[in-house]
Simulated scan of single mutants.
Amino acid sequence: MLNLLKQGMTPRKLAATLAVGSVVGVIPAIGVTTILSTAVATRFRLNIAATVLVSYLVQPLQIFLAIPFIKAGIFIFGLSELSFTLDEIIAMFKVDWLAALNKLWIANLTGIAAWGIMAVPTGGILYLIILPLFKQVLPTQKEVQI
């Protein structure tokens, strides 16, 4: 399976695939990683299956990083702090579910915006860290043709 995923990929493409999959996989919007990673992989001509696989592998980080992204977004946009316990959220939904949904929706959008601000620099840094490792481990195209 690993050979199938990296088939015909240069160290640069594989490093880009890993960086894109990692960054897209942690977006604080559950359910959009497959579509987004497929779109980005298609746009940059990366291995779609490998990109989606990497995004799935880092999804536990998506849940772990959702709150920090939301807090960063709230800070960036100067919104009032969102600090509710689960019981308070349930009570908000019982009183006015539309207002509660709106408040949580806005908070999640700020998290997505914070992720968007950090995505490109983080992906670039990941790419620069991973590329030298893949250049040492993977054969170059010239070695494959011999």
Rank of each mutant, 00 (worst) to 15 (best):
P68S: 02
W115A: 00
A72P: 04
A19I: 00
I146G: 14
S37W: 03
L104P: 00
K103V: 05
S22W: 03
I129V: 11
K103M: 11
A72I: 05
F44G: 13
M92G: 02
F44R: 06
G116F: 02
L53D: 02
V144I: 14
L98S: 14
S37C: 14
T51E: 01
T51Q: 01
P28D: 08
L46E: 01
I63K: 09
S80H: 05
T38G: 14
M118V: 13
M1W: 07
A49D: 10
R43A: 15
E88K: 09
K6F: 10
M118N: 06
F75C: 07
A41Q: 13
V54E: 04
I48L: 09
T51K: 00
K13N: 13
G21I: 02
V54T: 04
K103P: 03
I67S: 12
G21H: 03
I76F: 12
N108L: 11
L133W: 10
F77G: 03
G78N: 14
Q59D: 11
L79E: 15
P11F: 01
L53P: 00
W105C: 12
I76H: 04
F93V: 03
I27D: 00
A15P: 09
P139M: 08
K13A: 12
L36C: 14
Q141P: 02
P132W: 11
L82S: 14
I76C: 05
A29H: 07
F77Y: 08
F64S: 14
L14G: 00
K103F: 03
N47K: 15
V32P: 08
A113H: 00
Q7K: 14
E88G: 04
P60T: 10
T34I: 06
G78F: 12
V52L: 15
E88Y: 06
A50I: 02
I76N: 03
L126K: 01
A113Q: 00
K6N: 12
E81G: 07
P139T: 10
F134R: 03
T17E: 05
I106S: 00
Q136A: 08
L57P: 08
L53Q: 04
V120N: 06
L79C: 11
R43D: 04
V144E: 10
